[in-house]
Write a protein that binds this DNA or RNA. Structure first.
Lengths: 203, 203, 203, 203
DNA sequence: CATGAATGAGCTTTCATTCAT
DNA sequence: CATGAATGAAAGCTCATTCAT
């Protein structure tokens, strides 16, 4: 019983270690340049062991984002649900998003590199963007009900508009090697989404 | 003279054929998965011929974007210079951008896949984004002088905000396999940049 | 324990097999014409296996002579140390040298072909000649102290004179495909070194 | 008539230029590493032109030494015939040999690298050594008749003994990048051949 | 379960040689 | 005769994947 438990924990542990080692190496070399050997070395296991837990290199990436997606969206959900207005929800979502990436820069590197690729190695990566857009849509619709957000919007476009802008801000931070505080970008970003860059004199 | 001319055209032609074949295969398989053999087959030349014109695979990508960047930015410049107000300039820039990508979907596929990658294969790809941000900055500053655009903006952030949003819209179109008209997104996008999504009741 | 032992032997064995196969193929085709595939076939392993044990083709050559040099110079040293006079040392060194090459004709073939080349593939090969000349110098100096060898000698030249002569004798034997006894050349050679070809009437 | 003459000279010239360019490149890179393209560039002709004058790379090497051998042995012959005693002949042969190599270091580099190889690219290279040994034999036999050279010699060995020693001295000079005067080695070498290194007290 | 040595398919790159101009 | 672009065979090397231990 004890042995089974230990063994289960060990197994779990080895699985997790490979998962994390994968992201570390993917971040370091890029998914394609990463080799199974380097991941195995990073995880402290033999090359062959990788294949006991994962189908192949792509599978490591897929399983990683599959697992992380749930964690992160749970955090997003909590952040949003605790807020009153749609504007507040927006602010919390973006903040939470930037926090998550700032906390795990390796994940951010891999995500920014792999998302948006037409030849994405793992569709899980794209699935995350999709779920994210749904969140945005939800908040926007709420904001419209509240009267905060105007109703003459092409929702499909607005979702991309927001996701793209945030993504680019994260990418810039990643390429800058995380030398500044990413989260401080959240409020200015939300302000740009809501008010735009216009002086308001035009309307 | 005639012979020289023909030979020069032939040579030019072969260079261009390989360049285009490269982008076609990059779009089909992704830069990393693309092989020299497949590019050669696509171009209708022998494998070794590639090396008479290009240093290696990366060089094909670099030379392609190097050449295209100049064409495209010339178009951008013309479009902008013909416009009166900053708003008009914005509209024309975005339109022109979307047109260029819509015209050459293979280029769009490769660009969207390769830009933003931390392990970018060709710095030329990143250089393009950089030049693009400069154009945006120029228009914004003009708009501020005109009174169209508000002055309390963090310019570095605004540039990313706009580039990211447009990029994402292009990426979405690319992934949708170009099934709708990309250019029709230009005006709604510009409207979002200027006015934001807010109802205006907040201020 | 047994397994570890077997495995170590196997591994050692495979390393040695590749090493020997390398020399066999180098002797057969020449170092430059030899291919990894042929060496692998000769060793009974896959091409890729070569790279588990050696960096590349040159490395096989280098490791071979590195290992053999130590063996051979140990033999030389023992032979010399067991002798009394400088003349005896000379005789034993040359005998030992010819014996070593006669024992392993493949090594002799490769050595004769690769030593003395300005574009040497492995500096280990030239290092052997260098060590050999040092041995000669040592014996000569002893001989001079003993009064056996005259003192008005340009040592740097004498070392080449002796090494070159022995080398040529070995080369001739190699090119003759080992059809006669190489070691029987030792005494006549030493005699030539000591007495020269002169009748002695000149002095 | 004039045109034919010019053309013949041109043709001759182009042949010679390729021959010399070949040796230059062989000396620079080694025979195997040399490429037809580099030889063509060095000779100032097109790649394809090489094949109008030579069968292939090996053929350039063969033709070069074939031609040079005649020149050099003619010089050797003249030098020897002008001498009185066998000792004088010996001195002149060795001097002439070292002069010839010192005059054309590129030839020396290639010769030292290619001679003695069992996988010789051109048998002409080995033929030179053979002719050289015949000259030595001739002088020795004369010297024996004169009483200068002792009669109890194994001639086949003596020829190698002398050729090898001279060769090694040349090789050393080649590897030292020609930094000293090679010809000055002639007299000390002849002295070593005749008198040996012995003090003479042994007999 | 875990290992890691071995495999060999697959890729890049070079370069001798040809041949249309 | 001369050219040099084009060819494609041939080689080196990497690395995902397997499997005996």
């Amino acid at each position: 019983m004890r042995e089974v438990l230990i063994s289960r924990i060990d197994k779990q542990d080895k699985y997790q270690r490979i998962l994390q080692a994968g992201i570390t190496v993917f971040a370091r070399r890029g998914v394609f340049r990463a080799t199974i050997s380097e991941i195995a070395r990073e995880a402290g296991v033999a090359d062959g062991t990788i294949y006991l837990y994962f189908k192949n290199k792509d599978d490591i990436l897929a399983r990683f984002f599959e697992a992380r997606a749930d964690d992160i969206f749970l955090r997003f959900r909590k952040a949003i649900d605790g807020a009153g207005t749609a504007r507040e929800k927006f602010a919390r979502l973006i903040t939470c998003h930037l926090e998550a990436f700032q906390e795990d820069r390796e994940m951010a590197v891999v995500f920014q590199a792999e998302s948006r690729k037409i030849h994405a190695m793992a569709e899980q990566v794209n699935a995350i963007s999709s779920r994210y857009r749904e969140l945005i849509a939800e908040i926007i619709e709420e904001g419209q009900a509240e009267g905060l957000i105007r109703k003459d919007l092409y929702l499909a476009l607005v979702k991309r508009f927001i996701l793209g802008a945030v993504d680019e801000v994260v990418s810039t931070w990643v390429l800058a090697e995380g030398k500044y505080d990413l989260v401080s970008m959240a409020d200015p970003l939300v302000d740009l989404f809501i008010r735009g860059i216009g002086a308001g004199s035009e309307d």
